[in-house]
Amino acid sequence: MNWAAVAAIYRFEMSRFFRTLLQSFISPVISTSLYFVVFGGAIGSRIDQVEGVSYGAFIVPGLVMLTVIMQAISNASFGIYFPKFIGTIYELLSAPINFLEIVMGYVGAAATKALFIGVVILVTSSFFVDLTIQHPLAMVAFLLLTCVSFALLGFIIGIWAGNFEQLQLVPLLVVTPLVFLGGSFYSIEMLPEVWQTITLFNPVLYLISGFRWAFFGLSDVPVGWSLAAIALFTSLCLTAIWWIFRTGWRIRS
């Protein structure tokens, strides 16, 4: 393993993040506060409780997941798309490194940024609602796995994208609907039965459900399924990336 190269890529990517630290920090704080005003204040006052948890607290895991997923994807996709766009990718391709090292550098950095923002949201939330975390270890594990797996997806999107519009396409058209329909802001039991069944095909549901279980001990699907789903998703992404580097698809002209 060329650990020095992994560290070099990781540091290089993180330095971009630190250059814009204030923006990186302020925007999730503001958006989280807005969510609490709208969902917690306006809507939550009419819902009161979901399965014994106050609505304000109930949406915290979904809110964290929503932001973490979007951040992991956008950071990782931009991270690898930008060198492609400006041509500096030649350096990665001509360096004595393999695909795993490139992925660890870029995905590691993107996951770290997403994790940072996830924590910022959790802390911001705690100013609005009383949060109890029943299974802290599981919570951290779900958070980490989500950061990594969606950074992997973002990495694939970044390699696939041929322009900046395409870079936004998958997050907007696919991921946002999946996250919103995955029970971020409600329990799927609140849905009509047909929609409950349809929702079971949404992979994001399993993540949010598992993550919420770690907080409140309640879940839409058994927590084992959640773990299996995220493991499956991560391995699918890894396989895709392995194939991309083996064939040079969209990176080697």
């Binding site: 060329n2 020095a4 190269a5 070099a8 041509g87 500096t88 350096e91 360096a95």
Partner: peptide
Amino acid sequence: LVPQEVNLEPFEKVWKTVRFSRGLFGR
């Protein structure tokens, strides 16, 4: 390799980008 096109990250500093290259080669 010194490529034909001037492919450089515009917002990066000279020192950092050169250090990055060395790291990338595992040195």
